[in-house]
Design a binder for these strands. Structure first.
Length: 862
RNA sequence: GGGCAGGUGGUGGAAUGGCAGACACGGAAGACUCAAAAUCUUCUGCGGGUUACCCCCGCGUGAGGGUUCGACUCCCUCUCUGCCCACCA
């Protein structure tokens, strides 16, 4: 029931939803001569629960944005699609015993209905669905391209940069490999392919029964989707060599307009560090040499203070020296290994304070000092960073100090603090990590630590003890999932020929329908039971072979979807190059903070790869990125079923009308804020919509009765309002768009409006309240849709003399106001200002100075 | 531990270095009504003065300093909150 007026918004919405369906108002035109604008919101994951408020918020803001730019004469592309592969749909389908294809199709229908009922004008002719074979054919194509390319980091690129993906056939093969035959050549090539298979320890979710990428495992060691504590398993997995693109992913961040936080997060995620790999010989207590260990360090300057070496329990070096360790020690190492693999966040935090470890009984030789450093094992050293081994400098690294304390290892000071302190280091608080000059360090003594780092690095390289190295924190991307609802990996395994890609003309490899979609109890994919689907011919020798049963992760389809909107029905190519050239890069990409290191980084990688292939026109897909905020529940907590504070979009649209909900989405706060839903505030904008309807309806009646002659045109500032809103929309300040509209209407509600004023006002509000504007446009007797009009915005310049009211201040305190022409002479303004009674009252007898800023302020200083 | 973003009324939030608190919610009073809802009108940062009224004065954007004729805005120090990453060598 509408509660605020006689405005029957439900009927109006129904009427226009039906009419708009056929008009194609949001159609974007390839190669149009109008300026293009490609605005993208992250495509949703369609779930049975329907849209949540966050979707409504994001999509409404950019619907308004798109409509506004269309009115301003832009060729706007604002598309929508479905990221429909993924675990939630699969899990839901299995739970209710149905085919995920059907469940997914139904969910899409729910979403589409809801989007339309909010008046969101997407270009539906470009709709895509990542789980449709026509779409994932190209996801598979990208995978095969990666398989058939390697990264030549010395290749001179056409844009002047260094490093490019090249066909695997261009990979130089060493002579001895060539001699060894085809199998050896293939094995060699496999080491360089951008998509390759490798045995990897992989996080395994026992609930979802699938392997996960590191990125899908949260800090507390749980699966981000279901919250289950993950285990670790070794599996043969497809990997994508994203690390090959690390430098370009870093460097090109400078060329795009992303928020600082996003750039910082990506840099941090890539985690580039330069340092030195130092190799130490491992010796027994009888100085028998039994092996060697390489440690990565960013602080070689402190190496004179090194007193021990610690390796991760998983470090393979331990196997090679196992025969020199006693049984007890080996058992202890095994314990640490298990612990390292199943630690929760709480356990890690507890151990952050107290470290434990075990000494192997072996030693590493510090060539600098000639001392024997005990070789220890501890789980505070991580296998997946650096070399999985650390040289311990307890005097100048807090973790090393804690470890030394527990293990009773010596602490040597090699850096003099800035305050000159050179006392013995006996407590954690004395451990100085960042500043100082070298002491007790032979030829380094007296050098600043940064200078010392350079000197020692060169020295170590010269001696052959160490090697300068650049390290990255992130890893190649595990691209296999052991479940059903994803893109089949288009690879076939032949006993004789090994892995080969499915020929292009046979794509897509479609996901087979099954009788039973449940996971096997051992965690095997239901696809493994699809024997007739698995059976394939080897693309190379035509013998019987088997399909890959692992599917791709849910990021696979969403990595490149924005390209398919450009050319969604192309059967020959992923996207036509010239169409891509017209639309790319995206003008703005609006999405969630949670995607900045996953989707946003990986999709940049995929785009760069496609750029190397010559399939797309530029090196970066997103010219501008903005992150959306979060709408909390009315109780200021994150909306969640468990709190019972979820606000349902359907219900609020029914209660307040789509226009009011849209306006509230704009009005709720800055586009990137975290702010609670407040039904009280919805009432405010609903009142405004009702007032607009009532008041403008009667104005329209008056104008029509008097044949357009009644208005005397005393509307104040419609031109200024247009400029203000244009500025606000450009800067995504949607909340002040609404307040400006309210302010204008409050001022002019009772004025007489000319027909022209009403017309212009309706066009102006149409992006924000599309139904109301269209309805009133019709009752004004206008032909065509209000959304197909153009909005004239006058530039500020050339308007003649502008009068502004400026504050007149005495000693910085406002005492009066004064209306002046913006280009009035200073002396004249000051003279007038001095005659104001208020000013005379406060002006000291002999004021020293007057500051006049034209159009801004006058300030008398005493 | 690192990174990023913030701190403005009772609430959500406005403010290219130039009138702090726009706009809205909530609240108060009044109009309409048998009454209520809805709607409309006026007031609403804090403290004080004059309080018959117009008004007048002081204080105020997390704290402290700095730059400036002038600072919510720029700089420094500190503090608190939120988010992200984190035994990253």
């Amino acid at each position: 029931m509408p509660t605020h007026s006689a405005y029957d918004f439900a009927a109006v919405q129904k009427k226009w939803n039906e009419k708009w369906e056929t008009l194609g108002l949001a159609r974007a035109e390839d190669f149009s001569k109008k300026p293009k604008k490609y605005a993208l919101v992250e495509l949703p994951y369609p779930s049975a629960a329907g849209l949540h408020m966050g979707h409504c918020w994001n999509y409404t803001l950019f619907d308004a944005y798109s409509r506004f730019y269309r009115l301003r004469g832009y060729n706007v592309l604002y598309p929508m699609g479905w990221d429909s592969f993924g675990l939630p749909t699969y899990n839901h389908a299995v739970k209710v015993g149905r085919d995920p294809h059907e469940v997914s199709t139904e969910n899409v229908q729910i979403f589409k209905r809801q989007l339309k009922e909010l008046g969101l004008g997407f270009d539906w002719e470009r709709e895509i669905d990542t789980s449709s074979p026509e779409y994932y054919r190209w996801t598979q194509w990208i995978f095969i391209q990666m398989y058939e390319h390697w990264y030549d980091s010395n290749f001179a690129r056409r844009d002047g940069g260094i490093g490019q993906a090249r066909p695997i056939s261009d990979l130089p093969i060493p002579a001895e490999i060539k001699k060894a035959g085809l199998k050896a050549i293939k094995a060699y090539q496999d080491n360089f392919r951008l998509a390759f298979k490798a045995k990897m320890p992989v996080a395994w979710c026992p609930k979802c029964k699938t392997g996960l990428a590191n990125e899908e495992v949260l800090g507390d060691n749980t699966h981000e989707r279901c919250g289950t504590v993950v285990e670790e398993r070794e599996l043969e997995q497809w990997m994508l060599r994203i690390t090959a693109y690390a430098e370009r992913l870093l460097a090109d961040l400078d060329t795009v307009d992303f928020p600082n936080g996003v750039k910082a997060a990506q840099r941090n995620w890539i985690g580039k560090k330069t340092g030195v790999n130092i190799t130490y010989q491992i010796v027994t207590d009888k100085n028998e040499e039994v092996g060697s260990i390489t440690c990565f360090t960013t602080r070689p300057d402190t190496n004179f203070g090194a007193t021990f070496v610690v390796v991760a329990p998983e470090n393979p070096v331990l196997k090679t020296i196992a025969s020199y360790m006693d049984k007890e020690t080996l058992l202890a190492v095994e314990e640490y290994k298990k612990k390292a693999q199943s630690k929760t966040k709480l356990e890690r935090e507890a151990e952050g304070k107290k470290k434990t470890g075990v000494a192997t009984g072996l030693y590493c030789l510090n060539q600098l000092t000639g001392t024997k450093m005990p070789l220890c094992v501890s789980d505070f050293v991580l296998m997946d960073f650096g070399t999985g081994a650390v040289v311990g400098v307890p005097g100048h690294d807090k973790r090393d100090f804690q470890f030394a304390e527990v293990m009773g290892l010596p602490v040597i000071r090699v850096v003099k603090n800035e305050d000159g302190d050179i006392s013995e280091i006996t407590s954690l608080s004395q451990v100085q990590e960042a500043k100082g000059t070298m002491i007790n360090s032979g030829f380094l003594d007296g050098l600043d630590i940064h200078e010392a780092t350079k000197v020692i690095t060169d020295y170590l390289e010269e001696k052959g003890w160490g090697k300068k190295i650049t390290m990255y924190k992130f890893h190649d991307w595990v691209f296999s999932r052991q479940h059903y609802w994803g893109e089949p990996t288009p690879m076939v395994y032949c006993e004789d020929c090994g892995w080969n890609p499915v020929p292009m003309k046979e794509l897509p490899v479609t996901l087979p329908k099954l009788d039973d979609y449940k996971m096997g109890e051992d965690g095997s994919s239901p696809l493994e039971k699809a024997t007739s689907w698995i059976a394939a011919k080897c693309p190379n020798c035509q013998k019987d072979a088997k399909r890959e049963t692992d599917v791709m992760p849910n990021w696979a389809g969403s990595n490149w979807y924005y390209l398919r909107y450009l050319d969604p029905h192309n059967k020959e190519k992923l996207v036509d190059f010239n169409i891509a050239k017209y639309w790319m890069p995206l003008d703005i990409y609006y999405g969630g903070q949670e995607h900045v290191t996953l989707h946003l980084l990986y999709s940049r990688f995929v785009y760069k790869f496609l750029y190397d292939l010559g399939s797309v026109p530029g090196a970066e897909p997103y010219q501008m990125r903005r992150n959306h905020g979060i709408i909390l529940g009315p109780d200021n907590r994150k909306m969640s079923k468990s709190w019972g504070n979820v606000v349902n979009p359907d219900q609020v649209v029914e209660k307040f009308g789509a226009d009011a909900v849209r306006l509230y989405m704009m009005f709720i706060g800055p586009y990137d804020s975290v702010t609670p839903w407040s039904e009280k505030s919805v009432i405010g904008v609903a009142r405004f919509v009702a007032r607009l309807h009532k008041n403008l309806s009667s104005k329209i009646r008056m104008v029509k009765d008097a044949s357009g002659e009644v208005g005397n045109g005393d509307t104040v500032g419609l031109g200024k309002l247009k400029n203000k809103i244009a500025y606000d929309v450009e800067n995504l300040k949607f909340n002040t768009v609404v307040s400006s509209l309210m302010e204008f209407f409050n001022k002019n509600e009772k004025a007489n409006w000319t027909e022209k004023n009403i017309e212009q006002f309706l066009i102006l509000i149409s992006p924000f309240t599309p139904y109301l504007a269209e309805e009133l446009w019709e009752s004004l007797g206008k032909t065509g849709s209000v959304h197909a009009q153009s909005l004239e915005i006058q530039e500020e310049s050339g308007q003649g003399v502008e009068i502004v009211e400026i504050p007149v201040m005495v000693n910085g305190k406002v005492r009066a106001r004064l209306s002046v022409s913006i280009d009035e002479q200073e002396q004249k303004v000051v003279d007038v200002a001095m005659t104001i009674t208020e000013i005379k009252k406060f002006l000291p007898d002999g004021h020293k100075k007057v500051v006049y800023v034209p159009g801004k302020a006058v300030n008398f200083v005493g």
